[in-house]
Design a binder for these strands. Structure first.
Lengths: 105, 105
DNA sequence: CAAACACTTGGCCATTTAACCAAATGATAA
DNA sequence: TTATCATTTGGTTAAATGGCCAAGTGTTTG
């Protein structure tokens, strides 16, 4: 593995890492159709608003969402919709796992 | 977020988490064309063989790869090729980030 | 301008992750 | 059956993550 390869793979891993949390995946689903302020999003998650804010900042840091201020609120929107589509493959892994597991029983 | 949603999202996050490491992404690339034994894979990675073995076990646990023994060696193969294809979207996030960053300079 | 509102940030703590080394396991070769 | 090879597993340690609370920042409202 060359240094250049290492660099590329680390960048990819960083994006995947940002996606790899149930709350963050839920946030992205909410942002799929339209932008939302943090307060909207906090309502749906069973967590402190500061926790939600930090999750959003992880997604922003990774370049997955963007934010804009409008008055008191800050609105987040999904920057790269393909990310959610790509989850269909993740889903197929899960289904296959379930099937394999069922066969073992 | 219902308990059922939570369950689903946690399962997805688990698969993404397994992908979210540069070494594991590299391993998957190697397995894309053909199966390899652990020794093959260790050669390319700058890490202890036990480290590589543990990375492979993370991928296996997530249902992303499978293994079979042949004599002394254990061969791993990619179970879900679509996972690597889906990285094109991850790549587009990275490119967009680079572009945005360039604009700021 | 002070109070209230919507968020973000810093601090703290518990848990998880990743790396290495050493020891254990499983299979073949001597 | 002992030695050797290929890999996994256990133990340890350092660093990263995720949660909450409290304090700080930026905006609007009274």
């Amino acid at each position: 593995m060359t240094a250049e390869q290492q660099r590329k793979l680390t960048a990819r891993a960083a994006v995947l890492k940002a996606l790899a949390h149930p709350t963050r995946l839920w946030l992205l689903e909410q942002l799929q159709q339209q932008e939302h302020c943090v307060c909207d999003l906090t309502d749906g998650v069973n967590a402190d608003i500061s926790t939600v804010s930090k999750h959003l900042s992880v997604l922003k840091q990774a370049g997955i969402v963007r934010s804009r201020r409008d008055g008191k609120q800050i609105y987040y929107r999904l920057e790269t919709p393909c990310l959610l589509k790509m989850l269909s493959c993740v889903e197929s892994v899960i289904e296959k796992n379930a099937k394999n597991h069922a066969e073992l029983v």
